[in-house]
Design a protein around this nucleic acid. Structure first.
Lengths: 197, 197
DNA sequence: CACACAGTTTGAAAGGCTTTCAAATCGCGA
DNA sequence: TCGCGATTTGAAAGCCTTTCAAACTGTGTG
């Protein structure tokens, strides 16, 4: 009784993910329908709904798929022996949107307004958040005593910067975004932005 | 030829806004349909679509409606003669979500992922953002020389904190959120979070 | 080797949504 | 009072997701 549940789609699963990802990247969230996805994959919307439970189920799996991938790279970064600041920088670069409309952040943003009304989504949010939070927390513990406070601050700033990068704020670049995060770290070099007088 | 366009709905318009707002607050974005709204207002979905141009049109008007309201209060705060830090605090309190699932922030979050593909939405985003950005900017100019940089940083942090407040992060309160923003200001009192050694 | 059967796939149906449309209605200015 | 543009209605069109029965696998068993 080997559990062969869904096994037939196991290889194709990857294909579904990639196609959905591509669709998200080129057309945006509004255009991602199970119908359209089924059309592109030569299968039926009904089947996709069955396989993922629901459209939201697919979106969640898609987010999980990409977070799992990133988690591996994140572990490497966190465990490297570079200086804390450099590790934090790499975490930021890993987390920031790679380009305007990056599907991963599209999914995150889509998740937020639904979290209040759907416990399953809230759970997913907490689960994925925890990965990044603990990574940041571990690094910051080498730089500050009030780890929780600084982690919360850095995490929120990263979210805000990511939204700007996602939506295509032309005044912000990834490098600048990192500078903003770095500025939250305890004074290692130049001080804060004060008023010369 | 007095332009009476839409005048018949002008008074009822307020009622539409309020009902939509209430619906958003109690049931969330996923449940806000023109059909449901029409049902509650004893009119038809078709009419709402005609009047607002589209469902997105309604959402945009709803956001504009609430931003306009806040802009008035914002002006009062910015022009008051309290110390810069206190004015900034009031701006933050004005801007942060008032409760978990605050419709205004629900609308903001809904706006973001659509901005890349719909020029009209991008324009609205820039317009509304500018109001807050310039208010923050004006205040920060009293505290720092590099106004643009600090404004961008503060603005991003506020966004990130707002998302946390919106989704109901139990470890964050409005007061704590303000403390985070305050910590970005040039050292007026206690220094940053460094590591005691 | 055939068969049973759980698990998968299909295509159509159900029901909800937004948007469009023609027809009915309204109300202002002449 | 009438004409006419603007509004309102309700139904239709066309999309979507989800559900469902029916057909189809492939694997383990007799």
């Amino acid at each position: 009784m080997t559990k062969q549940k869904f096994s037939r789609l196991e290889r194709p699963r990857e294909r579904v993910m990639q196609e959905a990802w591509a669709l998200l990247a080129e057309r945006g969230l509004a255009e991602l329908s199970l119908s359209e996805l089924g059309r592109r994959l030569d299968t039926s919307a009904g089947h996709l709904s069955y396989y993922f439970g629901s459209k939201n189920g697919l979106l969640l799996e898609l987010l999980r798929w990409s977070e799992d991938e990133l988690a591996k790279e994140l572990a490497l970064v966190v465990e490297s022996d570079r200086p804390a600041e450099e590790r934090l920088r790499q975490v930021c670069l890993l987390n920031f949107p790679r380009f305007v409309g990056d599907p991963r952040w599209l999914l995150w943003v889509e998740l937020w307004p639904r979290v209040m009304h759907e416990p399953a989504l809230r759970e997913a949010q907490l689960e994925f958040d925890a990965v990044w939070r603990s990574a940041i927390s571990r690094i910051l513990s080498e730089l500050t005593d009030d780890v929780d406070t600084l982690t919360q601050r850095v995490f929120a700033l990263i979210d805000g910067l990511s939204v700007s990068l996602l939506t295509g704020d032309t005044t912000l670049t990834v490098d600048k975004a990192w500078e903003h995060v770095k500025a939250l770290l305890p004074a290692a070099g130049a001080g804060g932005l004060s008023r010369s007088r």
